[in-house]
Simulated assay, not measured.
Amino acid sequence: MNKQTFIGIAAALILVSYVGISVASEAGNARKGRFLFRQNCRPCHMENPVGAKPAHYLGPDAKTQAEWKAVFENYGDLPCKDEWSKISDEDRQDIFRYLHDGAKDSPTPAKCG
Results as ranks from 00 to 15, higher is better:
L58C: 04
Q65W: 02
H56S: 11
P79N: 12
A52I: 11
Y57E: 05
F72A: 04
G76R: 09
F96R: 03
L58W: 07
V71G: 10
H56Q: 12
K81A: 15
P54N: 08
E90D: 07
G76I: 04
E47L: 12
K53F: 09
A66L: 11
K81I: 09
G51W: 07
D82F: 03
W68C: 06
G51S: 00
P79T: 08
D82N: 10
K63H: 09
K86V: 10
H56R: 11
V71H: 13
S85W: 04
P54A: 14
E47S: 13
N74W: 01
A62D: 08
F72T: 05
Q65E: 12
Y75N: 14
D94F: 00
E47H: 13
T64Y: 03
E73R: 15
K63Y: 10
E83T: 02
L58Q: 13
K81M: 12
P49C: 05
D89P: 05
F96I: 00
Y75R: 13
G51V: 06
G76D: 12
G51F: 08
H56N: 10
F96C: 02
I95C: 03
G51K: 06
S85A: 15
E73S: 14
A62W: 03
D61H: 06
V71T: 14
E47R: 15
D94H: 06
F72S: 08
K53Y: 09
E47I: 10
Q65A: 14
E67K: 07
G59R: 02
D94K: 00
K69V: 04
A66M: 02
P49E: 10
I87R: 01
E47N: 13
D91A: 04
D94Y: 00
P54I: 11
W68R: 11
K81H: 14
G59M: 08
P79E: 15
D94R: 01
C80F: 06
D77K: 15
F72L: 01
A62H: 00
Q93F: 01
W68A: 01
L78M: 12
E47V: 10
F96G: 08
K81T: 14
Y75D: 05
F72Q: 09
E90Y: 05
V50P: 06
I87V: 12
W68V: 07
S85G: 03
P60C: 08
A55H: 05
A55Q: 11
I87G: 01
A70M: 13
W68Y: 09
W68N: 12
N48V: 03
W84F: 11
I87D: 00
G59H: 10
K69F: 05
R92I: 03
K81D: 14
